[in-house]
Design a protein around this nucleic acid. Structure first.
Lengths: 242, 242
DNA sequence: ATCATGGTATGATAACTATCATACAAATAT
DNA sequence: ATATTTGTATGATAGTTATCATACCATGAT
């Protein structure tokens, strides 16, 4: 998968290690404080995996062996109970440290992760990451800060969602995809109405119904999974106060 | 507040540093990997604070200057919105790392903390803790693991609560106090019905009503804030399935 | 091609929960 | 001591949400 190239005098400022880590968005975050020799070693030992929409990346309960992070794509982080009902905790992009969550809190994965679109992950032996963290406090502190921010955001989102009614929750999730994921008022929903329901604590019927209401009120237009936000301000008001 | 004592040949196995840190429950967790000289320095620079029931320990939005941890007592961790409505995130005991949350994710406190009974906190300059974490990866990793566990538990509790109805939520909170806090089926509620409501996403009226129902069904007995759990198995079933 | 399946859609109804009103006790303030 | 506020308690009602039923479409399987 990798072979060390001694030099590369291109215009790219990032250091080169003979694999494509230098083009990885997560690289800076993780490895700013790790020295180059170690970085090259990790880089060559990492395992890259491709997943298609719907593919399971991590199954809740699996042994936590690898430190898996999302390099590109979009995933859902969720839990499933004995009756088979799922609850989505987070829709994760790269830099969101999705698969990082709970990596240090247990010996098993606490959440499942499934790809919502074509996604690429990189895996590094967790034992190696833990060694690194022990050897290198700056690296550990860096990880801790990122992880803490992700956790706090999940908590705050849960609290916000809990305060809202059907319309507010539905507006919330539409604005989340528009502003935080696709940065556009026109996008294709990466999840079904049922999954939206699992994300914001509603029933699928009510998600569908509320989306239809928004359409009838000309706040959005719907074409299958294609959503266009027409009246963003009103949607924002609904998310906040209604 | 402290003066170094050179030795203490008593039966206590923990090391002595001239202040009462050696009797602190949190000591092992935090400082197992920090060497004795540093420990003594921290110990003598720490600030200990006492709070009575109802006292505000941390106000959301305050600058995050100190690393404050709960040495003894019981606290609530919560957020308050513009309309003055609060949501309780966690009831925290010592070892729960309550005040630790979000310490590394921002420059401000993200949550407020108020004492629910007489509580003692210790404060250490956050900058010193960050230095320590940078210098000492084992210490940083240790912190990260503890923090991650606390966060994961909050997420899982939120998801569980979200699945339940009024009776299930109310049973959940009673069992939480009985099993996780007081380790007894007879205890005094440290919070009001209103606060229970803020904790589990209900209205105070419905908390009161549901507690009354439980009393009428002889599942519990109520005398003001004194609660005795009579039918624990039934309460457990209600928490899980109804 | 046709069948089964899952997703979307909508209405009717049942179930659940919040709100409003009222009452009273307990704690706190003046 | 009395007044004010806060907490507890309960009922009636309005509002919100879930469930059930049905229908249709799109997708993938045989």
């Amino acid at each position: 998968m990798s072979q060390i190239q001694s030099s590369n005098q291109g215009s790219i400022e990032k250091k080169q290690f003979g694999c494509d880590c230098e083009r990885c968005d997560l690289r800076d975050l993780f490895f700013d404080h790790v020295d180059d020799t170690i970085l090259a070693e990790i880089c060559s030992s990492k395992e890259e995996n491709n997943y298609e929409k719907g593919d399971l990346i991590i199954r809740e309960g699996e042994d936590l062996i690898n430190f898996i992070y999302l390099r590109s794509g979009l995933v859902k982080l969720y839990r499933t109970d004995k009756e088979g009902k799922s609850q989505i905790i987070k829709i994760g992009k790269p830099l969101d440290f999705v698969s990082l969550l709970s990596v240090f809190s247990d010996t098993m994965h606490k959440y499942s992760v499934t790809a919502l679109e074509h996604s690429v992950t990189c895996s590094i032996k967790l034992s190696r990451i833990i060694e690194l963290a022990k050897e290198n406090g700056e690296f550990a502190l860096n990880l801790m800060q990122k992880m803490s921010r992700v956790y706090d955001q999940i908590i705050i989102d849960f609290l916000e969602i809990r305060k809202k009614h059907l319309r507010g929750r539905t507006a919330h999730v539409l604005l989340f995809f528009a502003d935080s994921v696709y940065k556009s008022n026109h996008f294709e929903l990466p999840i079904s109405r049922k999954e939206i329901a699992e994300f914001i604590g509603m029933t699928p019927e009510n998600v569908i119904r509320t989306l239809s209401e928004f359409r009838k009120d000309s706040l959005i237009s719907i074409n299958g999974k294609q959503i266009a936000i027409i009246e963003k301000k009103k949607l924002l008001m609904i998310s906040e106060h209604g």
